[in-house]
Simulated scan of single mutants.
Amino acid sequence: MGFLPSLYGCLKLKRKVNEGAVKGEEEEEGFSTQDLFFKFQTLQIATNFFSELNQLGRGGFGPVFKGLLPNGQEVAVKKLSNVSKQGVREFTNEVKLLLRVQHRNLVTLLGCCVEGPEKMLVYEYLPNRSLDNFLFVTDKSASLDWSRRFTIITGIARGLLYLHEEAPERIIHRDIKASNILLDEQLNPKISDFGLARLFPGDDTHFNTFQITGTRGYIAPEYAMHGIVSVKTDVFSYGVLVLEIVSGKKNLDSKLDNGKPGLLSYAWNLSQGGNTLDLIDPSLQKFNRDEAAMCIQLGLLCCQANVADRPNMNSVNLMLLSDSFTLPVPGKPGTQGCARRRTTTSSFPTVTGSTSNTTGATKTSVSSGSDFSRNSISVSLIDEGR
């Protein structure tokens, strides 16, 4: 395959960076770049010959299996489907992208397997699997208390900020959704599945495409209708995901809004009627009122129809980390069935000052719209038949 030589070089560079290797150290340590290329037979044995009992899930790329390596390390093996027409391209894309990035809120690529028709990615294994397995399962959603949900919201935001502004080159994920957020032992989130991601070298900020990829309900309207991709594409998906985490409801739910599917319109109508907190997941018996209201408003801000009015991930992180702030009033959310190009600009958000917390870290206050305080007491919900 044409990408194999470059992949070999990238794996070697990644290993040197991760291990702090410099010229000449490979020979001294007995290091071989082949350590990052797994043998097919090794992965066969590790996954009990890709047994259905070991299968963790299945996506457009192919199935994912839990494996146990000879050294006792648990891994997740993503196996390229032989019938997937786009699989090879997605495989190459994911490897090249993940070799460029390292962050605590991104899943870690351990290596890959390329033998004949077999192509696989090997990741760290995360025992709690994906967020949707908790969020939308009745007997598990209660284990996601408000503190954990807020930690997940902020962790995903940090991961996206890294991809958009701090990685060696800007990366747009294009498929942010609950099933692509994996949870570690402490339920900390890690963004996964970079098969559809797009690398933005240099100063490029957006591109147009005729091939729309992603998941219905999470796709930004300007992308769905006009093929325009930018960091705001991920921001829109993130906003939908925030509303799902707060509400415990899927973004396309026929039980919402008098039988009309759409978490966005449901959340918007509640906010317009002054009933924002009615969106909160009924399984949350205790939650921080201001924090929850802020997250709902933030989700709506990220999902605005006007691309220019959506915050970037740096602004999102400022809002989430600030002790006190005022958020702008969100405009009407966009839908995939109705998107308009607009060229208006917005001031979003306005930095008004900074304070230091007890750890010495600097926190910034942002302003304009609704006031929130992180120091408000928790609220206990009494069952009101919702």
Rank of each mutant, 00 (worst) to 15 (best):
F3S: 13
P5G: 04
Y8G: 10
L11N: 04
R15V: 09
V17S: 14
G20F: 06
E26D: 15
E28M: 14
G30W: 04
F31Q: 04
S32M: 08
D35C: 12
F40R: 03
T42G: 07
Q44A: 07
T47C: 05
S51D: 15
E52L: 09
Q55K: 15
G57W: 07
N71W: 00
V75P: 01
V77Q: 01
K79L: 13
N82L: 15
V83C: 10
V88K: 15
E90I: 05
N93D: 08
L97H: 02
Q102F: 07
H103F: 10
R104N: 09
V107D: 00
L110T: 00
G111C: 11
M120W: 04
V122D: 05
E124H: 03
Y125S: 06
L126Q: 02
L126S: 03
S130A: 14
N133S: 11
L135Y: 04
T138G: 04
T138H: 13
S141A: 13
S143K: 14
L144F: 10
D145H: 13
R148G: 03
T154A: 14
A157Y: 02
L161S: 04
L163T: 00
A167K: 00
A167I: 02
R174I: 03
N180F: 04
I191K: 01
I191F: 05
F194R: 02
L199Q: 08
F200I: 01
F200G: 00
P201T: 04
G202V: 00
D204F: 07
F207D: 05
F210A: 13
Q211C: 11
Q211G: 05
T213P: 00
T215R: 04
T215N: 07
R216P: 05
H226R: 10
V229I: 10
V231K: 06
V231I: 14
K232W: 02
T233A: 03
V235N: 01
Y238R: 02
L241W: 07
V246G: 06
K249S: 12
L252Q: 12
S254P: 07
S254F: 10
N258T: 02
N258L: 05
L263G: 02
W268L: 03
L270F: 06
L270E: 06
S271F: 07
Q272W: 04
L277C: 05
L279F: 01
I280K: 07
I280W: 00
P282Q: 08
F287M: 01
R289H: 14
R289Q: 12
A293M: 05
Q297Y: 06
L298C: 12
L300P: 01
C302W: 06
C303H: 01
C303Q: 05
C303T: 14
A305W: 00
V307Q: 03
V307T: 08
P311E: 14
N312Q: 12
S315A: 15
V316E: 13
L318D: 11
L321C: 09
D323E: 12
S324T: 14
T326V: 15
T326G: 11
P330H: 05
P330W: 01
T335P: 02
Q336P: 10
C338W: 01
C338L: 12
T343G: 13
T345G: 11
S347F: 14
F348L: 15
V351N: 10
T352V: 15
T352I: 15
S356L: 10
T359Y: 09
K363A: 10
S365R: 14
V366F: 03
V366N: 08
S370N: 08
D371V: 09
S373C: 12
I377T: 13
S378C: 12
